[in-house]
Design a protein around this nucleic acid. Structure first.
Ligand SMILES: NC(=O)c1ccc[n+]([C@@H]2O[C@H](COP(=O)([O-])OP(=O)(O)OC[C@H]3O[C@@H](n4cnc5c(N)ncnc54)[C@H](O)[C@@H]3O)[C@@H](O)[C@H]2O)c1
Ligand SMILES: NC(=O)c1ccc[n+]([C@@H]2O[C@H](COP(=O)([O-])OP(=O)(O)OC[C@H]3O[C@@H](n4cnc5c(N)ncnc54)[C@H](O)[C@@H]3O)[C@@H](O)[C@H]2O)c1
Lengths: 215, 215
DNA sequence: TTTTAATAAAGAATAATTTCCTTATTAATT
DNA sequence: AATTAATAAGGAAATTATTCTTTATTAAAA
């Protein structure tokens, strides 16, 4: 099975991180009616090097026009496809607390291809409530329904000490990817995709810059 | 002014991202009463290479004992100092909506050295409320108080289209660092530190793995 | 029509990061 | 007491990511 060499190697993770920002920027331009955008403009917006932008976009099928730039519409269409934002994937969220509720409220996730179909908790206070039209169930309910509903992702927003328990449950549910918002690291079978999103890491970077770069 | 060459070069950002995780892990071990931890154990927990752990820790003053590992207490103490988590920095949060409220509720931030002293919004519904004992003011209030209160950081959790307006305000307030949770990129003077935390980038990475690595 | 300048694209060079390899140390085992 | 195995640490090598350089193209200006 021979593939395009770029696909074989995979897209660099830093590139994947930047792409949603290009997309958001292009969507804004599209709304404003701008038809073309150059790598220079995008780079200026992102505070990065213009060649970085062209390199990143070269992983996709988007081609630019010399002296003009890229067609905004093409960036929007190709990039949302490329990033998997134009097909809707379903997710379960476990832990409908502060952060979990914020995610349930966020329509940005739907816009970027993620549809949270149900939430789970153990607290009687939250169970039964609807948050942004998404119902919160007791964690013991729906145990084998993930596969049936073709839910591919599990979102963990419980306290760190319960992250592993929840992860185990999600694996049992047949979920393929886990988005873990707790600072805890979870152990799962090799074929399960795990994305850790540790907000506190950002603090470390800010503090380091605050305390060293500046005087 | 001659400095240690490691300090001159700066700590790599990936290292800074991993360090808070080492810290959280060590804190857990400390609570359980474990006295030593090896790079192998940490690496196993983090799903990374053990030499990565020793390299990362070598940026700090922590030294390990052959055949034993690192003292857990030392990791906790040195790392929280090193990351700037043991001195409290003050922040203003603007946009007390879903995500803003979650951050206001999160005591993890306090634990990692960030003290949100006040929140701002424009919606009459939220203004005047207290979230986790933090009062929400109208954005027009307190205009020059940031410096007086020595607030170094501004957190932006407003809708993307208002991010720039808020950023401009924060710069005028004399804030040194901005933690931007919107997908929009903001333009600020060079000496202002900006940390963009775009949750949607994580989606791009997960989807890419879901759609390519597997099968 | 000719010239100029802005641009994409591809490849080379550089820089950053991770992984590998070697050595020395030492707790645990024999 | 000698041996074994697990480890930290430092440097080398490999890998990955970014930046620089060159070339070709073309819209706009002269
Ligand atoms: N709130 C934030 O802004 C924020 C920021 C960064 C990281 N985090 C992390 O996100 C996680 C959640 O934080 P939070 O502030 O939302 O906490 P929270 O206490 O508000 O919410 C946790 C929710 O999980 C539920 N829960 C607990 N154990 C459970 C289980 N076994 N199964 C199902 N549900 C369970 C609780 O009932 C609660 O509703 C924590 O790990 C925290 O460190 C939160
Ligand atoms: N909710 C999430 O989980 C989530 C996830 C990822 C990213 N985000 C991003 O975070 C941002 C906020 O999202 P949210 O879901 O909290 O939105 P939200 O609508 O719940 O909250 C936004 C708040 O900002 C206030 N606001 C608007 N303009 C303002 C201004 N000029 N000055 C002060 N306050 C102002 C609004 O009154 C509102 O209270 C968005 O950019 C969103 O894309 C949110």
């Amino acid at each position: 099975m021979i593939q395009n060499s770029k696909k074989m190697q995979g897209v660099p993770e830093p590139t994947l991180r930047r792409m949603p920002c290009y997309l958001a920027f292009a969507e804004g331009l599209l709304r404003k009616g701008q038809q073309f955008v150059s790598s220079t403009q995008i780079a200026n917006y992102m505070n990065i090097d213009p060649t970085q932008v062209t390199k990143d976009l070269s992983y996709t099928s988007i081609v630019g026009k010399t002296r003009v730039g890229y067609e905004v519409k093409a960036i929007v269409d190709v990039l949302s496809d490329f990033l998997g934002f134009s097909v809707m994937d379903s997710a379960f969220l476990v832990g409908a607390g502060s952060l979990g509720s914020a995610l349930l409220h966020d329509n940005g996730l739907t816009h970027f291809g993620l549809n949270i179909v149900a939430a789970f908790d153990i607290s009687p206070i939250t169970i039964g409530r609807k948050i942004n039209d998404i119902e919160v169930f007791h964690i013991d309910q729906f145990r084998d329904l993930a596969q049936e509903l073709s839910v591919v992702m599990g979102i963990i927003t419980v306290p760190a000490e319960n992250a592993q328990t929840v992860a185990d449950l999600m694996v049992a549910w047949g979920i393929k990817a886990i988005w873990n918002f707790t600072p805890a690291r979870i152990k799962v079978p090799e074929d399960i995709i795990v994305q850790n999103t540790s907000l506190y890491s950002n603090l470390a970077i800010i503090f380091n810059k605050l305390h060293t770069e500046k005087n």
